[in-house]
């Protein structure tokens, strides 16, 4: 064996076979480091292009196969991840009657759409002749069912300093009366034009000097027996079309529709339009809410 290493640059060389090139000539000991020579940038690039099926050294067929494989592998992986995430949401632990991730997102929705709210946005009103004679009845939770109890009814209002005072229906009838004919909307999806009369919530607040109370974020309302209860953000309660309502179709409120006093709040679904209001309080925390606890969003704003 010669001492001179053969090189590929000498094609005429009749020397040893190419393997001889691997036999290094006697040399000083190599510096410590990687045993294999570092691949050049170009070689790396070529390997990468081959891996993704974009190398010119590959046949068209090879490129097609490689790219198809990568694309479909990605597609199936992402599909599987989506499928898995779906069950993470669907089978997540519940918070107030609905999957926790959805509950969190619903709370964000509430925050976003509260910005769209304005006292200047009034719901459309209709002539009294357009109002339904047969007003739809959906639920009677917590209603007073006999007229004696209706006669003895009083609204108990708890103030910010935790005092409670009572208001009779005759007291409320003394206040300026407002009437509203609007399209009542149920969370189930139906709607009906109906005619209501009572005192504007904002007038009621004015007359009873509840400004300190309405500086708080929420109004809590419940039936006298606490079986049905709602929480309403104060801006919606003070909306100019919100009524403490004691008349329907020009007549005193029937028992099935919440005698003697109900809430009519056109900027909310029916579920917030509490029938037979017995108690009222104010709070910066969300008052408990019957349908919120059963998975609906808290705001329910229209």
């Amino acid at each position: 064996m010669e001492n001179k290493p053969s090189t590929n640059e000498d094609p005429q060389s009749s020397g040893p076979p190419p393997e001889a090139a691997q036999t290094p000539p006697p040399q000083p000991a190599p510096p410590p480091g990687p045993l294999r020579p570092k691949p050049s940038r170009a070689a790396l690039r070529e390997a990468l292009l081959k891996a993704v099926g974009h190398s010119d050294q590959q046949s068209v067929e090879q490129q097609i196969n490689r790219r198809t494989f990568i694309a479909f592998a990605t597609w199936f992986t992402l599909g599987a991840a989506a499928w898995k995430s779906w069950f993470l949401i669907k089978d997540a632990a519940q918070s107030d009657g609905v999957q926790t991730p959805l509950r969190k997102a619903l709370n964000v929705d509430d925050k976003i759409f509260k910005h769209a709210f304005s006292n200047d946005h009034l719901v459309k009103t209709f002539p009294k002749s357009a109002a339904a004679r047969n007003v739809r009845y959906n639920s009677g939770i917590g209603l007073i069912t006999n007229s004696t109890d209706t006669a003895n009814w009083k609204l108990a209002v708890t103030t910010a300093d935790n005092r409670t005072f009572n208001i009779s229906i005759d007291d409320l009838r003394q206040l300026p009366k407002s009437e509203l004919v609007f399209e009542f909307k149920c969370i189930e999806g139906w709607s009906q034009i109906s005619w209501w009369g009572g005192v504007k919530f904002s007038d009621f607040v004015q007359q009873y000097g509840l400004q300190k109370e309405t500086a708080l974020d929420y109004v809590g309302l419940s039936t006298p027996d606490d079986k049905y209860y709602v929480g309403i953000d104060t801006p919606s309660a003070l909306h100019p079309q919100t009524l403490l309502c004691y008349e329907m179709n020009g007549q005193p409120l029937p028992i099935r529709h919440g005698a003697p006093l109900r809430l009519i709040i056109p900027v909310k679904y029916g579920v917030k339009n509490l029938k037979c209001v017995g108690k009222m309080f104010f709070s910066n925390d969300r008052p408990r809410d019957y349908w919120f606890e059963r998975g609906y969003d808290y705001y329910c704003g229209l």
């Binding site: 609905v98 999957q99 509950r103 969370i187 189930e188």
Partner: peptide, 11 residues
């Protein structure tokens, strides 16, 4: 499943 439907729909 109305409540669940609304929750999914509004997310």
């Amino acid at each position: 499943r109305l409540a669940e439907g609304m929750a999914f729909h509004f997310v």
